[in-house]
Write a protein that binds this DNA or RNA. Sequence first.
RNA 1: GGGCGGUUAACUCAGCGGUAGAGUGUCACCUUCACACGGUGGAAGUCACAGGUUCGAAUCCUGUACCGCCCACCA
Length: 896
Amino acid sequence: MKAEEKTLDKRYEPGDVEKRWVDRWFELGLTRAKTGSDKPPFCMVIPPPNITGALHVGHALNSTLQDILARYKRMKGFNVLWLPGIDHAGIATQNVVEKELAREGLDRHALGRSLFVKRVWAWKEKYGDTILNQLKRLGASCDWTRLRFTMDEGLSKAVREVFVRLYSEGLIYRGDYIINWCPRCHTALSDLEVQFEETEGSLWYMRYPLKEPAGGLTHLTVATTRPETMLGDTAVAVNPADERYTEAIGSKVVLPFVDREIPVIGDESVQMEFGTGALKITPAHDFNDFDVSARHGLPALKVMDLSARMNEEAGVFAGLDRYEARKKVVEGLEGLGLLEKVEPYKVMLGECYRCSTVVEPTLSKQWFVRVKPLAAPATEAVREGRTRFVPKAWENTYFDWMLNIRDWCISRQIWWGHRIPAWHCLDCHHITVSTADPTECEKCASSRIEQDTDVLDTWFSSALWPFSTLGWPERTEDLETFYPTMVLSTSFDIIFFWVARMVMMGLKFMGEVPFRDVYIHALIRDAQGQKMSKSRGNVIDPLVMMDRFGTDAFRFTLTALAAQGRDIRLDEERVEGYRNFCNKLWNLARFTLMNLGAGYAEEVDPALYNSADRWILTRLSVCTEEASKAIEAYNFDDAARALYRFVWHELCDWYVELSKKDLRGENGGERRTVAAHVLSGVLNDTLKLLHPFIPFITEEIYSYLPGSGESIMEESWPEPGERFTEEAGAMENVMEVIRAVRNIRTEMNVPASARLECLCFSKDREMRQGVALGVDYIKVLAGVEEVAVKESGEKPGDAVSALAGSRAGGRVLEVFVPLGAHVDFDVESKRLKKNLDKVMDEKASLEKKLSNDGFLKKAPEEVVAKEREKLRALEEKREKLSSGLERIKGLGEVKG
RNA sequence: GGGCGGUUAACUCAGCGGUAGAGUGUCACCUUCACACGGUGGAAGUCACAGGUUCGAAUCCUGUACCGCCCACCA
């Protein structure tokens, strides 16, 4: 891969380079974690993407940030294990395969369970690694040899072990409860799998006649958003404190259509102000009603089947879909004169997170995890800081949820997933729960046993991810070495689904938190701030971005935008900007390589460094420290920005320009050698610093550098080097002069051909000396032919056509440009006037401040001193400006 | 109904007690031997609004407005 004589293209073309390095890293085994390493361990588990998934920007961001950590820690000398994996994604995958079957005119019932499951496995073999390849393409430096799948053998074992242990401790139970039912997927859903959508609905006021008049009432009017559920009503509830209905409590109403007599009960949960203050109770189809009925020992009556069609209990409505039934019920009531009124009303409708079908709360026999006993230690762990959220604000979200947590419905009526390890005895109905498949009932020894048909919620296996992937329940070396993991990086929307449950399970089964830090990254929106969604058509496809701008550019964009606690608005233009940055880096490398040539030396005596060398080395040292600190604090955006600024605005804009003469050999062979050495050294370190962010281009460039190893991944992370503060400061002053002269040049329309002489004044001796050292640089970079550095107060003599004041290190530095050039007096005097006005303003406010007793007394001394110094400087500046203005006026008149 | 976050240059965002910063865009000039995916220079902001704390507030506190998210069983 070395290309001694190869000349690099002017533009960096990412395509081939990226492919080549993905393969190369794998060949070299550089991303593999070592067993029995004496390096300190650093482990992260990847949030396993769904096998049905394709890489979206969220994955791209999260994986990029984790990759930065992994690469950084590796270079820092850690034994890094970034463990990859994929999730079997129960319902999602089943849906995909069912759709495939539908295209063939089949359905899963036609196939039968075992064939269907085989079919899903086949699908997984074929398409399951799509997203993994996309992650590889993104540069994710996972240990791909340790890839895990939530349904592989080891993990399935862990799932059974956990289920059995929780069951035997009474933390898993089976029972009839009201759950969220998806009538399309035909399965129960956990609370979290239901998404609420505000929908325009109606509030129907319906009259239920009282069996016998009570307290002057002949009927009760109830308000409901779901008239069809009245068929399953088993009571009407009113608030016992509601005087309107006091006498009705204890009496009965007759339910229309079905002529069922149901009691009127008193329950404090009823809001008197809402509707009529009378609430119909449908225990089998409403969460709240279920609770009320439980308090009063009421029966529950299901009136819908698994597809949300009305069942035989619904009498004449049987067989109708719930919405048709709603229409018919309303019409029927109207016919009976029992519909009092209808009001428009906004309802929050629960929808299935997979298929958006409106969920039907249904009474059903399901398996549950009793979470309260698990939640308590999980809350405690975060409170004690054993697990830390970054940004910390998310801890409150976590606590809130833990506090109000409800039992977790873990059974799903689908076929794809971990089947529940419970066997029902057909003779004695005992349930045998076991890690190994039993052959007989553990109670009556009957061999007539059947395994429960339900599978577990996908998140059940995900909850074990941090230890199941490391080999648990075996006590493997990986488990010993890498648990607890160091960081979990994920998005806020799965704090409940996943993070909280991992903490609970980790504490329960490992006795230790699963990770030290939880980094919650930003949510990516489109350029308009809209959430990306297929229906909006505003999805930015990471693969397209990577094709068009290169993976590095895309990664760098995501990183630079990843400020903590804030959403990201992703705009293509940003990616383009960072693509340009990559190109800039590429050309910096080209320039460096072009200049290494014969004079290049590996070692150079530091005593030979000049001011520019020492300046850039100092800046590099500062940048190194900034980047390291920022990564450690998860401020990836700060790190990216610091590096961007350093590369472009310090290294390229200044050092490269400052060193050009040296590199051309115009200042002798020694200078040439030293400059080449410094430039290539700085580039080398810069590449290392950038590598975690933009791995491909840095590897590629690194491979061309003399003395480079097989991969930049094996290099150590740079430590901040020696800083030459004073000399770097002097260099900054020189740069200030250069900028000032350039400024004058442009603003005064000084033609390139004009001879420019420059006079620099300062009272400060050190500054004068510093600038004097940079005279050569000023000449070259500002295009000035003569430079003189004088003590302030000396007469500028005849060189009075113009001047510019500029601040440098809090002191005023002046640059006089002599006659000889064409000078536009009009423009110049305007500029001076403007500057003067600005200075006067600043001065006025400073004077006010300094005449303020409070300020003088309370502000720290150094602040006051600083302000005094500033005022003095301003005063000087003002004098120069006004005298300059006077002189220009005079000249203008003479000339005119 | 609770809770959280946002409001800074045309756009996207940093800054979070000492009178404003970046990138993109824009304007002018530059086909200079790393790069026009480039260079140099410029213009551009009462830091949402109103009060308060402070010698001093974009920055802290209290309200208001508008945007966005999360949670919640008023049917």
